[in-house]
Simulated assay, not measured.
Amino acid sequence: MEGISKGLKKLGIHILIMIGILFALLFVFFTIYLPSYTSHGESVTVPDLEGIHYSELNNFLVARDLRYEVTLDSGFVAEATPLSVLKQNPKPGAKVKQNRKIYVTLNAENPPLIKMPGLVNTQLKNAQEILANYGLVRGEIVYVPDIGINVVLEQKYRGRDIKEGFEIPKGSQIDLVVGDGYGNQSFEMPNLIGMDDVEAEFLILGSGLRMGNINYVKTDTVPKGTVVRQLPPDGVMAKTGERVDIWVSELLDTIQF
């Protein structure tokens, strides 16, 4: 019995020693080796990359022990520099490990083309919201005499009328011609036939009407620059702010001998 007791005692001591060694190994592994292997406690603060150009990203991040990758998505902000950073992930201020990859979204080098929305006969407030939703910029607002108050009468791009559906670069500026609400006066349309185009335009605007299209007609019987047709014709009742189109003579090409 005494021999068995001593044997069990020795076995118990050996087990305790093995448990002690195991705990010591686990302690060393979790407190020394693992933190050293994983760089535990060493972190980098993610910088704000917004506005930094693509050509500067690599050097900027390498100096901070970080990397980057450009996402397939791209955006476009007219005010931002082409190929500059618009968004990033992780966000600025986040704590990450060294050599962490930062995903960036760049501003497109060229603005995408979008179809011009239809704003005519729309209230100015709604038109401005539509432009913003399409990524377009509201430009100059020109008020003209018209019965519709704050109603869009014309939409213009670079000084010319632009039709709905026409493709233009995103971020383009759109000017609006808007009614002032006072165009309820009626009068006879003046006669413009025989006037030169400058004189006719002066009379149209001076009568509270709007200048419409100027069309050119080749002729050898009427002096160049003379109005030969108008629409609406003279004598009909017109309202303030109504649009007037005119046709102006051009000389026929002559053959030189």
Rank of each mutant, 00 (worst) to 15 (best):
M1H: 13
L11T: 15
I13K: 08
H14W: 11
L16A: 05
M18R: 00
I19W: 04
I21M: 03
F23A: 06
L25Q: 05
V28C: 00
T31D: 02
Y37D: 00
T38S: 00
V46P: 08
L49K: 04
S55D: 15
E56T: 11
N59S: 15
F60I: 02
V62A: 00
V62Q: 08
A63R: 08
A63S: 13
Y68E: 09
D73K: 10
S74L: 03
S74K: 13
A78C: 00
E79I: 09
A80L: 04
A80R: 06
Q88G: 10
Q88C: 09
K91I: 15
K91V: 15
K91D: 13
P92C: 03
G93K: 05
A94Q: 12
A94N: 12
K95I: 10
N99K: 13
K101V: 15
K101P: 12
K101I: 15
V104I: 13
T105L: 06
T105G: 03
N107D: 14
N107S: 10
A108R: 14
N110V: 14
P111A: 01
I114M: 11
I114Q: 06
M116W: 08
P117Q: 02
P117N: 01
G118I: 04
L119P: 05
V120W: 12
T122R: 00
Q123L: 02
L124P: 04
L131I: 13
A132H: 11
G135H: 05
G139R: 07
I141T: 15
V142G: 02
I149L: 12
I149W: 09
V152H: 07
V152Q: 10
K156Y: 12
K156I: 12
Y157T: 08
R158F: 09
R158Q: 14
D161P: 12
K163Y: 15
K163S: 11
G165S: 10
G165F: 10
F166I: 14
I168A: 01
L176C: 09
V177M: 00
V178W: 06
D180I: 11
Q185A: 03
Q185K: 05
E188L: 06
V198N: 08
V198H: 05
A200L: 03
E201P: 03
E201F: 10
E201G: 03
L205K: 11
L205M: 10
S207F: 09
G208R: 06
R210F: 07
N213F: 10
I214E: 11
N215Y: 09
K218I: 05
P223K: 01
K224T: 04
G225S: 01
G225N: 08
V227C: 00
V227E: 01
V228A: 00
L231D: 14
M237D: 15
A238T: 15
T240A: 02
T240I: 07
G241N: 12
E242I: 05
E250N: 12
E250F: 00
L251S: 14
L252V: 14
D253G: 04
Q256C: 03
F257V: 12
F257D: 07
